[in-house]
Structures are given as C-alpha cells and as structure tokens.
Design a binder for these strands. Structure first.
Lengths: 329, 329
DNA sequence: CTGAAAGCGCTAACAT
DNA sequence: ATGTTAGCGCTTTCAG
C-alpha cells in the first residue's frame, strides 16, 4: 500500500480510502491511485486489516464429518448466511472425537473467528467459557452443549423417533428393534427415549435385547440386524437411529425373503425409489437457523441463550407400512 | 501478551517463547508465565502472528456446492491433508457461477491463504495470474484452469464415459442417449467426447437428437429423458453425464414398463441396492491428490505445473446390463 | 537465558 | 480533500 501511495504520489490514507471505497477523494486522485494499484497488482492484505479492526469477518463451523451427506447441506446453508453477512466460513471435522473438537475450536478461536457454530462431539464445553466471555459468539447445533449455557438449535429427535415407532405400532408391530448411535451422543439418547415412550404409550413391553446402541459402522450394525431377526422371537420391525444405520439395515433386509418393516431417522438420497419410510430432518434449516442466530448475536442482540427445536416429518414410502409377517405376530 | 508479561514479571519475548514452546526458558520462569496465562485466560491472537510471519496456515477450497454429495468427501479429504500440515480449510461454494468463483478466490487471496484449491466454475482464470505470481500456490481440481498454466488433478472423464458407453454397446445397444451438464463445463465436453468415441469405435451412427447438454436440474433432465424414450425410434439405453442426471433418469425409468439400460457417471449412495451401473470416480482421491500437490508446492517444490488424471471404475450392478427391449432393436 | 526495540500492513484519529 | 501519526499483537533481531 505504501508502494501504491509512493507510485501515485499521494498519502497512504488516500490509497486506503480508494481501496475501501470511502468518500473524500477527487475522481482525479482516485484514478491516479487506481492506476498505481493496477500497475503494481496490489491487493489489500486482510491480515493487517483484521489485526487493526479486531474483526475477521469469518465464522467457524465444527462438525462431525463433512463427507456425511447430512452435514454437506448444513454447512452449505451456514455458508449462505455467512456470505449474506460478508463473512467466510472455516470448516472443520471433529471425526466424532471430543479432543479433536476442542483442538479445532480453540484453533478457530486463536484465529479470532467472529463466531462459532459447533456440532458437539464431546459433552463438556466448559473449555469454551473464556472464549465466549472474550466475545466469540457460539451456537450449538444438532446436539446441546455440555456444562455451559449457550444457544442451541436441534431437531426434535425425541418426537420424531416416537412418531416413527408409533407408526410401526399402528401397522401392527409389537416387537420392534431399535439400533442407534453411541449412547453418549445426545440424539441417540433422545431417539431411544422416543422409542421407549411410543412403546409405553401403546402398552407394549420392551425387551432390552431389542435395543442396541453403539458405532454406526456397517461392521457393527450388520450383525446386530442379523441377530434381531433370528431366534425364536425375532422383531418384526426395525427403527434405525440415523442415516448410516438405515443404509446398513436396508442392505441387510434386501437379502431376506421375509419382509421386515423399517423406519429410519434422517432422509437419504433415493430413499423414495427404494421405498424407505423415514423421519426426515431438515439439515439445511438446522444450519440456516443456527447461522441466523449467530449473526443476530454478532449484530449485538444479547438476549438469553435459547433452545430452538425444529420439527421432523414422517415420510411414508412403503418400508414402514409393511405389516408383521404372518405367524410372527 | 503484554498483560501476561507484566503479570509474570518477565519480558514480552519470554512469554512468546513459552507460548510457542521455544527453547531457552528456565522451567521456573516457564511456570510463572504459564500461571499468568491461565489466570488471564490468554490465547494467542493468530491475526497478529500471521501479519508478522506472512503465513496464515490456511488454505482455501472453492468448489461448486458443498451440499452436493460429490464434493463433501472431496472437501473432507482436502481437510485431512491440510490438518496433517497444520492448516485450516476455508470452504466456499461458487454455485457454478464464474463471477462468484472469482469473488471467492480473490477474497481468499486477500486473506492471504497459503494455497488455493479451485474447482473452476468459469473458464478464464487469468485474474489469478498476479496472485499466483505473488506466491499463492494454486491447484485446480475436477476441471482444468482456463488461460493460465497451473497444476490440475482430474478424473478421466473421457475414458470413463467411453468405457461406459462401450459397455452399453457390448450389451447390444445401438441407439444410446447422452444427457450431460452445461456444455461450457469441461467434464461435460470430455464425457460427450467419450460417448462419441465409443460410438464411432463401434461403427455406430450418432443421431444428434440423442445428445442433450444443459442444466442438471430435474426440471430439464426429466423431459429430456421422456423425449428420448418416445417417438418412432426411441433410444434403448441412456448414458447419464453426472450424479444428478443419473438420479433423475432413475426416477423417470422407474415409472416405465419397458426396461431401458442406464449407465451413469459418478457413483451414488445406495446405487448398489438400486442396481445402477456407474462409472465411479473417487472424489476423496481427487481431493487428497490435489491437496498433496498443493502442500508440496508450499514446501518449496517448484517443478513444472502437471496434469494428473485419475482412473475411473466401471461398477456393473444391473442397469447397464439390460439388453435392448425386443422389437426396439 | 532473557529483554528492548523495530516493524509486519493496515486503519482510526487527528491534523492540515 | 488529503496527509501524518500512532498502534493493533505478535515475532524477529540483536544486545545484554
């Protein structure tokens, strides 16, 4: 910038004015400066600007895995809101590892992102307290924060799962399996609670062997499905706790001759063609809502941290409307 | 940092040394400094560090749409490589708009990202020349750069499409439709070239009405599929130029009674269950390869810009092995 | 082993 | 309308 000023024969501040489109420069001077800028290929260094202004115009998004089809749309929705506010988005994947989540979050704080959207992997976020106090607005999505009070935007996991299981019950099922994510994950707990509530509301007993929480790897889920469907009293329907579980369940069920009903949490591309009934949550809406809350905070709105819960939708496509196979009831 | 130094009763530089784990500090002094850091909740401000060091330890990735299942894994792969090199990843979606691509790229350059990975939306990247000259390493992925010489990592679109179409021909098809992306997109051109080559190699004539390039919106692709399959001489097979086209084609074909063969470019989740034959490209490998090239450059390797082409794989699952319906041949 | 001074490139505040 | 000065928070350099 100094070079530009020298070349244009003007003061430093005048260049700054031109670069930032500030008023108070004669068209003639502006032209001279512009020429110097072009000749030198000058481009403002935002690092210096950030240091001076104290704002980076960037927000961080820490999620579990950007390769998961659930998070792509979420991230994109956040990006769109950020863009509307002139901010860039720094993404990071925690790989469901609490330590990595913390490492990422703190790295983003060191960069002084203006705000942070976090899909928690861990359940203790007290490490964020000083950062939030220092002015980094933070919104949690998909799962609540642990140990601190902060904005959080969730899908109604409990209600969605309850409705999905009630749907299976309405189609005549009494023995329903539940396969969910790691028990430490909040949504897994909530969905299981929805399952139990639906069963209880219908006056049905729950055999604990029908319930399995853990990794969503096909290597774990596959054998679980197998086990639930064999033995003297197999389940006649399955509730899959998330998209990855659903995919594995569909693969397993496709190989069997006896039809087994299935409802999955999360929608999946092409699920309509495969006739998979799901509880759909709107990942983009989740991201958009969280981002809007974040920027409201950045704009200085300082009300109490709120908990927003987005409704889910039951999409009936066939797999959830299969009645129990004759003789298994 | 000044505050920490004051509180610990040491010099500024000593604090800096402790924060950065540099040698030359007595354990005792280090402890004092550490205490002050904890007490004050100090966190190094990377903005200032960046300004001084001239390196941001961040790379930018400009792609088309993070919500597209093809780009999620690509972005994640880039992130992993970046992480291994201690860098953060700033993502941006161009929405297939050349102006927005440029805007994003320049914004990232102003932030002084160390490097840039770009999936081009436009076909003229001369605007990047001064930036590259100024030291911002750049690698193009998925499509080549226009007007400048730079590293580029591609999938073998031509070969993949040629093999896919040859596969349909091998199963007896002579009238094959091709539905692709916008003609200005390089991969669309290459895949069409593959189609033409396969037809020519088999000595088959190509009716230009079998070919349709344009938006991949279902609203455009749907009617095109419909049109190709009606009339006196309908095509008996379709080659879909990318994942979105394939999805729409599958939806359309599911409604028909006469079987139509289909091979799609790009793999799709659950395509195995639906029996969709595809030419699969490895999005993660694309991202990883590009990122590795980028960091090699950042490490100072300065060889000639190279063009890397990754092989595709034909995954036969049923839809591509359907023979022409009797009487249509 | 430790610290003081200079300066990265920009902008805010205050002259002129 | 334009220029000057100070300083954002850190690292580099060089001196103790």
């Amino acid at each position: 910038m100094k070079d530009v000023a020298a070349r244009a024969g003007v003061g430093l501040k005048t260049v700054s004015r031109v670069v930032n489109g500030e008023p108070g420069v004669t068209p003639d001077t502006e032209r001279k400066v512009q020429e110097a800028i072009d000749a030198l290929g000058f481009r403002r260094n935002d690092s210096a600007r950030v240091l001076r202004k104290g704002r980076t115009s960037s927000v961080g998004l820490v999620l579990e895995d950007l390769a998961d089809p659930f998070y792509g749309p979420l991230s994109r929705a956040v990006e769109e809101v950020a863009r509307a506010h002139g901010a860039l988005l720094i993404n990071g994947s925690s790989a469901e590892d609490p330590d990595r989540e913390q490492e990422l979050v703190l790295a983003l704080c060191a960069r002084r992102v203006d705000g942070l959207i976090v899909i928690p992997a861990g359940d203790d976020h007290r490490y964020l307290e000083p950062e939030i106090k220092a002015g980094i607005a933070t919104v949690f999505v998909d799962r609540p924060a642990g140990g601190i009070s902060a904005d959080v935007v969730l899908s109604d996991s409990f209600g969605g799962a309850r409705d999905g299981v009630a749907h299976l019950i309405a189609h005549g099922h009494r023995r329903i399996g539940f396969i969910g994510d790691q028990p430490r994950i909040h949504t897994a707990q909530e969905r299981l609670r929805g399952y139990r509530t639906a069963m209880e509301d219908a006056g049905l007993p729950v055999d604990e062997r029908w319930i399995s929480l853990g990794s969503t790897e096909p290597g774990r889920v596959g054998p679980v499905v197998e086990k639930l469907l064999t033995g003297p009293e197999p389940v006649t329907a399955l509730f899959a706790g998330n998209n990855r579980v659903t995919v594995t369940a569909v693969r397993m069920l496709a190989r069997r001759e006896t039809p087994v009903a299935l409802v999955g949490f999360d929608d999946i591309e092409l699920a309509d063609l495969l006739g998979i009934t799901v509880i759909a949550q709107d990942a983009a809406a989740l991201g958009r809502t969280a981002a809007e809350r974040l920027f409201r905070r950045l704009d200085g709105v300082a009300d109490e941290p709120a908990r927003v819960e987005l409704a889910t939708r039951l999409l009936t496509r066939g797999s959830g409307e299969v009645p129990p196979a004759p003789g298994t009831r």
